[in-house]
Write a protein that binds this DNA or RNA. Structure first.
Lengths: 358, 358
DNA sequence: TGATGGTGATTAAACGCTTTAGCAGATTGG
DNA sequence: CCAATCTGCTAAAGCGTTTAATCACCATCA
């Protein structure tokens, strides 16, 4: 633990209030000298090579030296010599606005660590230039591969430099053949959302869809249809409305919704549901007694804390991140074609109640 | 662009549907050979050393070789030889639940990149074991230093291994002398929140504080007092209430609030304000006409989309991240003592209106 | 003419580690 | 008793860079 620069034991005068100047990191060689062995020997015990023939005596001496000196291997030197880095890159387009990217990161990190990889993350906030720099940085660190993720499910184009590495698209996809991708299963999610309502006896169920085109818009609608039809209910186009997918949109849809005489409504997302709550309340209607509501996305801050707490369908961001890593590493059996679709689980809270028999 | 393993031009049969097997990264040596010069020469032109004497002719040949081969420097080799890595570690305790950590990351990354550093991020989700592993990983990558961040402002203890590196606490602090820290200026924030109300003519202003102890609880209250007193209004203890700092808490505080006969209320955070909105609406009261409301935190999903949009005070997470990096790198002049306090700007929306003269 | 200086490059060592081949000495086998 | 085998360890090469030292060549100058 002795600094090579300052063996006097007194704090450097140059940095009086600062933390003590860090010693140069301890190297293998220093451990070797301290233990009176060669660096090769130290390396062998550090890496617990079973095959290596080292006496228990020596092993012990080395381990003590390691402990005494506080040795930490230099991962960069290891990567250099092993020829392959232990990094996986993750570029995200919006880490700072929703927790969605955070959940992807969380999942990716857990899975990556499980396989001995560290995550190199870059946040681009939609800035193309930053993105290019970020990918360049990852390429220079010779990452094992790159996860290219977006905060909402959408088509994307593959940046040129991305192609210099192995990559997987996460929560987005590209037409480009050979571009592997993981996305949420919107259709199944839409089906699940509708089934929650169906299960409680609702038959006339409205769907407030988004106005803006997106895979979610089509998928969630289709899921709604499928669930209805599986119950023998004919799809009624009049029951699907459209609004801008945020609180204001949901609020604004209230009037149109009430004209439909439904007992339940499935909203494109939680934010719309939040707005709708306000609209419904203004009309003196109570949830879930007068009308049942389900959302989509499971945005905790909103869904779990609305009054009553909102039943919704969860976007599997954590799983997307984890599955992205597995796909990158080739651990899942390869998809026959198209993106891998991840299941969207439903989370039931209190915005749906069994329909009282008429 | 020619793979050493497969020069036939046909895709490897081993990976029919997969992406083409990546070629081994191009090295300096290969560029040197292609350009007919030594590796030293290539290195010199890559790094644009002004001092180096290289003919334009050679420079051009080298650059062409670089372009043709698609050369990218190996950052790990660079770090190795330069003796110091270009990494800054950032450990966060909750990236997956709120966007707060995301904003810290965003700020830290921008500032780090500005100085040529890449961010090595680890999410611990409050798991001590993960945290230890994360710090170990960063230490092995010989990071320049570590930013240890928490998602809400609180005291923390410094994990032992953290001390092996330079570090800065971000959004948290420790008694430990020499532990540098950056935190939000809660007192100023509380003052600002109150001033928004004062500025619009309000005099009887309630404060719904949190029940759980935290620097924010004390600081925001003190700011409230200071702002009041600066206006010559004597602090009335009866006007400060306490509730659990979430939606339910805010909702539950409605009744107590209405007993106080105030024209405005300042909530400990946006989530409480959200609950309070519900409570007020149920009482048939309108915001901001019957009562003005300000929150704290500026949680976008909530504050910007409540009806009416909530005026609030922003927690400067982005700035915390950036300032953390600057402090780590020793770019800001050192604080005389205690954590550096970052300004909390107010963001005015529509939940406050000038008080009509009585 | 020989010293001096400038130009444009190269050589070689070093960074911290892994790993293969090999060495010396002890033990065993025939 | 010598060869073969085993045991415990080390020497040295190599990973992809950077950089100080050096070199060959040519022009200039006294």
């Amino acid at each position: 633990m002795i600094s090579q620069e300052n063996t006097s034991g007194t704090p450097s005068a140059a940095a009086p209030l600062q933390q003590a100047r860090r010693a140069q990191p301890v190297t293998l060689r220093q451990v070797a000298e301290a233990a009176g062995v060669s660096t090769a020997t130290v390396s062998l015990v550090v890496n617990k090579k079973k095959a290596a023939r080292i006496s228990d005596e020596t092993r012990k001496r080395v381990r003590e030296a390691i402990r005494d000196l506080g040795y930490r291997p230099n991962a960069m030197a290891q990567n250099l010599v092993s020829g392959s880095s232990r990094f996986i890159g993750l570029v995200a387009d919006a880490i700072a606005t929703t927790p969605f990217a955070g959940q992807i990161i969380h999942g990716a990190q857990d899975e990556a660590w499980k396989h001995g990889y560290a995550l190199l993350i870059a946040n681009t906030e939609g800035n193309r230039e930053l993105e290019t720099d970020a990918i360049a940085m990852m390429l220079e660190y010779k990452v094992r591969g790159i996860l290219y993720s977006t905060w909402f499910h959408r088509p994307t184009d593959v940046p040129d430099s991305l192609r210099e590495s192995d990559f997987v698209l996460v929560n987005c996809f590209a037409e480009e053949p050979g571009a592997r991708a993981v996305v949420p299963d919107e259709v199944q999610g839409g089906r699940s959302a509708t089934e929650v309502l169906l299960k409680h006896g609702h038959r006339r169920i409205a769907f407030i869809n988004a106005t803006i085109p997106a895979p979610a818009k089509d998928g969630r609608l289709q899921g709604y249809r499928e669930a209805l039809e599986a119950e023998g209910i004919t799809f009624d186009e009049d029951l699907v409305m459209e609004a801008y997918p945020d609180q204001e949109g949901g609020y604004g849809a209230t009037e149109a919704l009430l004209k439909r005489d439904v007992t339940a409504v499935y909203c494109y997302n939680d934010r719309m549901a939040m707005g709708l709550y306000d609209g419904l309340r203004e009309q003196g209607l109570s949830i879930p007694d007068d009308i049942a509501v389900v959302g989509f996305d499971n945005q905790e801050v909103i869904a779990a804390h609305l009054r009553p707490p909102l039943s919704t369908v969860s976007l599997p961001h954590y799983e997307l991140g984890a599955a992205g890593v597995r796909m990158l590493l080739g651990l899942d059996e390869p998809q026959s074609s198209g993106p891998e679709k991840i299941y969207c689980p439903t989370v039931e809270r209190n915005s749906v109640r069994a329909l009282a028999p008429a």
